[in-house]
């Protein structure tokens, strides 16, 4: 609802345009989950410490809990809901299934968005690099080994 305190903000989320009236103190994470009703992006800690809220904004992986919706006016956003091609899973989604890369699944949307960002950045050469550059995503269930295995597999043929 437009009030004196709100800011007109347009976001493109998973290729759909949203024109929103946002209060300045609402995090981008809460905008996605509560306003746009895309609840795939998870709130783990709400303080930048777990990576569950990772999304891709203007091509870069960031934490949606530490930014404000109003700060991202005009941005293009991809969340976990936007990465499959229709019924065809994204290669990372497929690899996560094949490598047993989750148990409860709560960290998984953030892990996958973060891995997409990492592969786009193209800075990781070795497995140790991948571990280091994925360290911003914690997994309480300890599926980390499967997660890194899944990413390593996709990394191998990612740029084909």
């Amino acid at each position: 609802m437009k009030t004196e305190a709100t800011h007109s903000t347009s976001l493109i989320v998973n290729e759909a345009a949203y024109n929103l009236e946002l209060l300045p103190w609402v995090s981008l994470l809460d905008v996605l989950r509560d306003e746009i009703k895309l609840t795939g992006t998870k709130k783990g800690c709400d303080h930048g410490q777990c990576g569950a809220c990772t999304i891709i904004v203007d091509g870069k992986r960031i934490l949606s809990c530490l930014t404000l919706g109003v700060m991202k006016n005009g941005s293009e956003i991809t969340t976990i809901e936007g990465i499959a091609n229709g019924e065809k899973l994204h290669p990372l989604q497929q690899a996560f299934i094949e490598h047993d890369a989750f148990q409860c699944g709560y960290c998984t949307p953030g892990q996958i968005c973060s891995a997409i960002g990492m592969l786009n950045e193209a800075k990781a050469k070795t497995r140790e690099d991948v571990q280091e550059l994925m360290s911003g995503n914690l997994c309480r269930c300890g599926a980390s080994k499967g997660i890194i295995n899944a990413i390593m597999e996709v990394k191998g043929d990612y740029h084909e």
Binding site: K60, R61, L66, S114, E121, L133, G136
Partner: peptide
């Protein structure tokens, strides 16, 4: 420092 996501911000 921090994580890749935080360094991007």
């Amino acid at each position: 420092g921090a994580s890749a996501q935080i360094r991007n911000m």
